[in-house]
């Protein structure tokens, strides 16, 4: 999806080039004002001082970033020691997002491969089947997962009834619940790019490998995987990035013990206890991490495009 957008279509067509500036103006205005400008303002806010009732006063300071990394004691005048709390939260988010990505990969790759090797008419149906859940409201999907996994929920009840377990599995409010929630939220994003890559793969190469004495699993490892690597990486990024900044899954499924970046940021803007510059700073740090990842990805795509 991202790849197609990046190319933007054939440049040979210039039918409406006289009108193009007028045509582009609405998107420039709307997006410039309400997406680009806000991000710039957010950058500025991260360097301002917080006000008691939320909001900011216009006094530039590094206090927000400072607060993120350092602990200056209760009154703010002690020697700075490394503040681990927030770093820990970020680290935990990276960890959770990483695990969710791995889980998605383990389930998503075989699924994508299987679908891509179905006959043409059923293939579209499978893709459709996999993508529908994505279009259901994320909140509802997360709530449904919460309902399913509750201590007194249907999953535990049926497992108890069948006799597999004797006590309900306590899944909600654990790390596992959050990972399952993240995996559930973004799984189609792992399946689709891999599916596209396998779809483009030339299976004559698998035949050649088999002809040269490779078992099926050796063929998968040495021939198929390297060939579909761009799709796999795209899928991983498309799951990791949203998982990193996710709010709903950690909040509804993880509870207080599983604070992640999303919850941390949200907290800064709730009511009067919030610290807007700090929230802006945390958002900036998150944004920077995502941008770095995206740049690495784009660079890798360009290199992959050059050698194929």
């Amino acid at each position: 999806m991202a790849g197609g957008a990046a190319s933007g279509g054939s440049v040979a067509s210039d039918t409406y080039k006289n009108a193009r500036h007028w045509l582009l103006m609405p998107s420039w205005l709307v997006l410039g004002f309400f997406v680009f400008a806000p991000v710039c303002v957010m950058v500025i806010y991260s360097f301002l001082t917080k006000e008691f009732r939320g909001g900011v006063t216009w006094e530039p300071t590094l206090a927000a970033y400072d607060q993120f990394f350092f602990d200056r004691g209760l009154f703010g005048d002690a020697d700075p020691t490394l503040q681990w709390t927030y770093i820990e939260i970020f680290w935990r988010s990276i960890w959770q997002a990483g695990l969710a990505t791995i889980l998605s990969l383990l389930i998503g790759f075989p699924t994508a491969y299987y679908i891509a090797t179905r006959p043409a008419n059923t293939r579209a149906l499978w893709v459709f089947l996999i993508t529908i859940p994505y279009w259901v409201n994320l909140l509802i999907r997360t709530v449904s997962m919460k309902f399913l996994l509750r201590d007194e929920g249907p999953m535990n009840n049926s497992l108890l009834n069948i006799g597999i377990i004797s006590e309900p599995l306590q899944i909600i409010n654990t790390n596992l619940a959050v990972q399952v929630g993240l995996f559930y939220s973004y799984l189609p994003f792992m399946v689709l790019p891999i599916y596209a890559a396998v779809d483009r793969y030339n299976f004559t190469m698998s035949e050649a490998a088999s002809d040269l004495y490779a078992t099926k699993w050796a063929t998968l490892r040495r021939i198929v995987l390297p060939a579909v690597k761009p799709g796999v990486i795209a899928g991983c990024i498309l799951v990791f990035v949203p998982s990193l900044g996710a709010f709903l899954a950690p909040d509804l499924l993880g509870g207080a013990k599983n604070f992640m970046i999303g919850s941390l940021i949200e907290e800064q803007f709730k009511g009067n206890a919030g610290n807007w510059p700090f929230g802006a700073a945390a958002s900036m740090i998150l944004l920077s991490m995502v941008l770095v990842l995206l740049m690495v990805f784009a660079h890798q795509q360009r290199r992959a495009g050059a050698t194929t």
């Binding site: 990046a6 998107s27 990035v241 949200e266």
Partner: peptide, 26 residues
């Protein structure tokens, strides 16, 4: 232009939410 149009999808939603809130406030 293309980058700007796809920007909202690239940026994590919570960052976009914070930025928009701050902007309206400002």
């Amino acid at each position: 232009s293309l980058a700007l149009i796809t920007l909202p999808i690239m940026v994590p939603e919570i960052v976009l939410a914070v930025a928009t809130l701050i902007f309206f406030n400002a």
